[in-house]
Nucleic acid binder design. Structure first.
Lengths: 108, 108
DNA sequence: ACAAAACATAACCAAATAGTTATGCGTTGT
DNA sequence: ACAACGCATAACTATTTGGTTATGTTTTGT
């Protein structure tokens, strides 16, 4: 899987986005993170593995704890890509539709 | 599926990101889009359906053609979320650790 | 009138996802 | 010494994903 797509796939899951949000406040151990979720510890470890493989987080062992912290560099690619669309989301589609003489209206 | 996650899922696939990129240059019919991909027309139609359900594209019928165009508003959410990480991706992780140590002063 | 074009959908399939329980391994507290 | 903690991984399962071929509908060109 391409490195870039690893990042997009990683952030496609809401739990993983939540994990990243939590890590913005600072380093956290797995058990600590687990308090915010309803699923099991292995499920959490799997999410963390996906984030690790996307290089969006790093770990360091501290005693028996495994502390995770953010490594946001990979998100820059996403920001840059989405940024290309900035000029589009401000113009109203309806007005664009007028220009294009669009009569269709809905998505199907 | 939550509306927001529909968008993240939609852009997780590289072919769909490519489709959006193509639509930035203007409206296109399905057959036209298909020239840029190696998979079958039904596969393309499926990708387009996912983009439609995420409300990232709209269609209008023009004769026997179905013309797709960008509706980028949904990408704003992504841009905003990723933007929260902007402060993190420029500094090296090691230096960030130092900074946080300084601010924190061992209060945790 | 009719063949072909443009496209969506259905039915199917292999692989990936996201969860589970079970287990093992290093670290810590008593 | 050893029980409990913190965590990763394995093995399993249901669901979703991304592709395929087959087919039906609407529109166009001859």
């Amino acid at each position: 899987m391409a490195a870039t797509t690893l990042v997009y796939t990683a952030i496609a899951d809401p739990s993983r986005r939540r994990i990243l949000d939590l890590l913005r406040e600072g380093e956290r151990a797995v058990v600590e993170l687990g308090k915010f979720f309803d699923f099991s510890q292995p499920a959490l470890s799997k999410h963390l593995r996906i984030l690790r493989e996307a290089k969006l987080v790093r770990t360091r062992k501290l005693g028996r704890e495994n502390r995770y912290r953010l490594d946001a560099k990979g998100l820059r690619t996403v920001y840059d890509w989405v940024g290309h669309y900035e000029q589009f989301w401000n113009q109203s589609l309806d007005r664009l539709g007028d220009v294009l003489d669009d009569i269709d209206g809905g998505s199907r």
